[in-house]
Amino acid sequence: MSQNLFIRNSVVIRDSRVWRDGELIFKNETETTLSKFLKAIYKHQNLKYPKFFKMDSLSKLGYLGAEILINGEIQDKNTALVFSNSASSLETDEAYAQTMQDFPSPALFVYTLPNIMLGEISIRHQLRSENVFFVSREFDASLYIDYSKALFQEKKADNVLCGWVDLHNNDYDVFLWQIARSGGIDFNEEELKKLYLPTHE
């Protein structure tokens, strides 16, 4: 059962910059810390979602990436979420482990799972759809392709929002894109890698 799938759009957040569909849309000239950079994106995008301020940095990255990618509302509420990263929730795991010595923080503990980000995006967009979170050493284009293809083949989704949202030791790397049966760039490893790392071609 072969089928043609297409990358509809993409977002990259890296090195204090944000790109949408390859175009630089935001550059942070002044802010130095990650949390200030995230807040600056939130303001620049004119977002109004108070839950943002309760999230850990990993979820903030995923939430912001999704907002910029879909630019408003996700129309298809059956849109599946296929996400992965390298460091799981280690950034928050380490912060929680610090509080363990003293008073273990339930507010931090709840973010010590990487798929919490999928919950945050699902809540924001009211998606009661398919979710999966993988962890791999580095960005694995073929894993997204194989798993997403199966979702389409099994008719479990007509639109898939994929994400690589990685954060550890304040180093972050975010790449989100949407796949559908029509419109955009061919969904294959080569094109995906080009969008993920355009500067390394």
Partner: peptide, 23 residues
């Protein structure tokens, strides 16, 4: 491949195995 999706991980890993075999 690592599936880390909270307390449904074990079932989701079986689903993943089936889906990746089928592709």
């Amino acid at each position: 491949i690592v599936v880390s999706n909270a307390c449904i991980s074990g079932g989701l890993a079986i689903k993943t195995a089936n889906d990746l075999i089928s592709t």
